[in-house]
């Protein structure tokens, strides 16, 4: 049944994503082909310590880093998105053929980052990464809450919804994020004692 659960969960989550111009992260199709195909034939995955950037330009990478850390900043429980190397993760997702045709998500990501820079140039006469944190947040405040977004911000909202998804995927699937959420499975359990008492205490 595990496959069924997973298949449905991904499908449903994907279905809830509106798809339009600046949407790229983790669609159901990507996620499911990814899960089926992402494991090399010998069953291992090989993270490389010295990751080489594949897709983003240096400027785009800087923008992604700044924005990702605004999405998930460090706090007293765990580090920030870039501490967990989320920008590198996103760069990898942009090019990974195992996640399906990279072209549409590359265009969406690139277009979204350019949209953000253009907005900042108009408002603050500076690129997003060069703006003050207050200015960066002023822009994000217009695109981070879809229901409250001002008219004309639709493309940015769509982009940011996807960007948020990607940051969460990268952060919470990292060792840092897994520890943050308190996932304690995938360990050897010698005796099954049922649901812990403190979990379902009424």
């Amino acid at each position: 049944m595990a496959d069924m659960e997973r298949r449905d969960a991904l499908k449903l989550l994907g279905l809830m994503a509106a798809t339009s111009t600046f949407s790229f992260a983790c669609t159901a199709e990507e996620t499911s082909t990814g899960s089926a195909a992402a494991t090399p034939p010998d069953g291992t995955t090989r993270p490389t310590a010295d990751y080489t950037k594949q897709f983003f330009t240096d400027h785009e990478m800087r923008t992604v880093r700044v924005m990702a850390d605004l999405v998930i900043p460090a706090d007293d429980r765990s580090g920030s998105a870039s501490d967990a190397r989320v920008p590198e993760f996103i760069d990898h997702v942009m090019t990974d053929e195992l996640l399906g045709d990279p072209q549409p998500r590359q265009t969406a990501m690139r277009g979204g980052l350019a949209w953000v820079d253009y907005q900042c140039l108009q408002r603050f006469d500076a690129l997003f990464a060069d703006c003050s944190e207050a200015q960066q947040k002023e822009l994000l405040d217009d695109i981070a809450w879809p229901d409250a977004a001002p008219d004309g911000m639709e493309a940015g909202v769509e982009f940011f919804n996807s960007f948020r998804n990607l940051v969460a995927s990268g952060f919470f699937s990292s060792k840092m994020g897994v520890d943050d959420l308190g996932y304690i499975g995938n360990t050897y359990v010698s005796e099954w004692t049922g649901c812990p008492d403190d979990v379902r205490a009424t």
Binding site: M4, L10, L13, A17, C26, W145, S173, Y183, N186
Partner: peptide
């Protein structure tokens, strides 16, 4: 009905579209 849920291993796509 097959029921699913729980504190599964966080992976790609986790809590996608939390804004909804």
């Amino acid at each position: 009905f097959e029921i699913w849920g729980g504190r599964g291993m966080p992976g790609y796509g986790i809590m996608n579209n939390i804004h909804t």
